[in-house]
Amino acid sequence: MIATDATVFPSPLGNTSVRRMVLETRELGFDSIVAIGQPGWQTGDFSVIGGTLIREPQMKAVINAARTNSSGKGLLVVNAGNNTFNRAIIQVKGVHVIRHFHKTEKNSFDHIIARMLAENHVAVDIDLRPLVLSRGVWRQKTIQRYKDIVRLYERFGFPLTLSSNARSVLELKSVREMVGLASLVGIEEPDVRVALATIQTLLSPVGPVQVVT
């Protein structure tokens, strides 16, 4: 996989069918999408990865979802909460991505969490939707929070993903647009390319060689 949009919401969560999302994202330069609430499937050289999103900051819900997704074929995405919650979910086996740090308190993401993310190979998602839709102070705060994340990303090297978080065809972004929007928060183009390819490494991580007897 070269480029994956890390979160899209096809119908019934959005107003666009998953087939239409596939047609449009293919034209925009992607070869896979993570579709929340959809099963995974493949059409030609394009992959739809099924995604599960846990919105409520409750450990029980995260553990249940990780257990349900134990096959590891789908992507488990969790909305960030406070610092304690974030530290706890990073250690849950099966959690792939944590997102929406910009909606949490400022101390919910620190260097300890950044190190834990790198050690447990859990990604932070940079949601580009608030950069597009919000204006003024709210966008400024989002940019500031994303810049804090990027600063720790450069230091600790935890996985990063980029998502349009699109609920409609109109909200989808091309790879080139993502490069432009990511530059607003200090992510350079090579890092954007790496971030767009991160989903594949999350789903099939490279582990130590096992000797089978």
Binding site: L28, V132, L133, L170, S174, R176, E177, G180, S183
Partner: peptide, 20 residues
């Protein structure tokens, strides 16, 4: 300009996108 174009989401209360 291209980055600003990708932040256009609405025109006269109608959803729209401008892709460079």
């Amino acid at each position: 300009l291209a980055t600003a174009l990708s932040t256009v989401s609405c025109l006269n209360e109608q959803g729209i996108s401008l892709r460079s």
